[in-house]
């Protein structure tokens, strides 16, 4: 854990929190300062997606397309054709929710380095309800050839991931959350596209998580230690391309896997891990996440509790698995 410079005690009640999207906002601003070709476009959600920092600093490199997500991504494709690195943002429910075919044809098949920024993903969006709680974005983006898919675990990682995709020539999707998420990394924690990280070593089972759920996975592992269960925790910020080597090695070591994500398990991280392991190293896999259903209105914490996406729920599943 020390090698990765993580926050040591995730159970500390005073652990600081920040919305993951805030890290994206800072990352985009920095990417814009580093590379004059980084440009941005937004579909009427500039403040919510935190693109506002970039817009304020570089108004001449920012495009407001209005509430028009199909246009958002195709305008991005056009800018990329002229050598730009366009970041295009909206809520994940709308982009990539509404404009999937445009992403498929004009970004992925056309192979242009457009960076799709989907904010407000997951049930933790809260009171806005199911329409705005995007759960299928990972599945939608993961299935596309050429696409890189990233779900950062906290705001600091989001900042690093944004800088990383800004200097990468591939199309990319980055998934952001609305609510404050505990900050588990430090400014020295590594991030590289395509790498999964063993955040905690263990031997009894492996908890593989992405996005907001890695904090819950680490908290679950800390509880499990007290029960004498040594869980390995692998944070998988890049869902595509998947770090197969790290995942297979851990599955072989522990022989038991739980995947956790704030989205549909069908086609999501759980789907990806199950596909990989079934072919390479058949392993019992419990997939935690949204079980083929929509979310609903409520407070973010209530919803995570309601849908079984907390450290407590992960620990219960771990007990069942190692029994």
């Amino acid at each position: 854990m020390n090698d990765l410079n993580l926050i040591k005690d995730v159970l500390d009640k005073d652990i600081s929190s920040e919305p993951i999207r805030k890290g994206f906002g800072r990352g985009l601003l920095n990417a814009g300062k580093i590379n004059v070709n980084v440009v941005a476009a937004c579909a009427d959600l500039t403040e919510s997606t935190q693109m506002s920092l970039f817009k304020k600093e570089f108004p001449e490199r920012f495009v407001e397309v209005g509430v028009a997500e199909q246009n958002l991504v195709t305008v991005g494709s056009g800018m990329a054709a002229m050598g730009k690195i366009p970041f295009v943002s909206s809520y994940a429910a709308f982009s990539p929710g509404r404009n999937w075919e445009q992403i498929r044809t004009t970004v992925c098949l056309n192979d242009q380095p457009v960076k799709i920024v989907g904010s407000h993903a997951g049930v933790s969006v809260g009171p806005d309800g199911a329409t705005h709680q995007m759960l299928e974005d990972i599945a939608l983006m993961r299935v596309l050839p050429n696409m890189v898919v990233i779900a950062p675990g906290d705001s600091l990682e989001a900042e690093r991931a944004t800088l990383a995709i800004a200097s990468d020539q591939r199309p990319a999707y980055i998934r952001l959350a609305r609510e404050a998420t505990p900050i588990i990394t430090t400014d020295k924690t590594p991030f590289e596209i395509g790498k999964a990280y063993v955040y905690k070593a263990g031997k009894d089972l492996t908890i593989m998580s992405t996005g907001t759920m890695t904090y819950q996975a680490l908290a679950a592992a800390a509880k499990l230690e007290k029960d004498g269960i040594h869980a390995e925790v692998i944070h998988i910020p890049t869902i595509k391309p998947l770090d197969e080597k790290t995942i297979i090695a851990s599955a072989k070591k522990t022989g038991k896997v739980i995947t956790v994500e704030e989205g549909q398990i069908i086609g999501g991280l759980g789907g990806a891990i199950a596909e990989l392991l079934s072919q390479t190293s058949p392993t019992k896999v419990i997939r935690m996440g949204m079980q083929d259903r929509f979310g609903e209105s409520g407070k973010p914490d209530e919803l995570l509790e309601h849908f079984g996406l907390t450290a407590k729920h992960i620990a219960v599943q771990a007990h069942h698995l190692v029994m």
């Binding site: 440009v39 495009v63 199909q70 246009n71 195709t74 305008v75 991005g76 494709s77 056009g78 800018m79 990329a80 054709a81 002229m82 050598g83 730009k84 366009p86 075919e101 445009q102 044809t105 004009t106 098949l109 056309n110």
Partner: peptide, 19 residues
């Protein structure tokens, strides 16, 4: 550009012009 699915060309042209 890659095209076929309809309706995407004008916005790509606009993106090029913006760049």
């Amino acid at each position: 550009t890659t095209s076929g699915p309809l309706g995407c060309g004008l916005s790509q042209a606009a993106g090029m012009a913006l760049a």
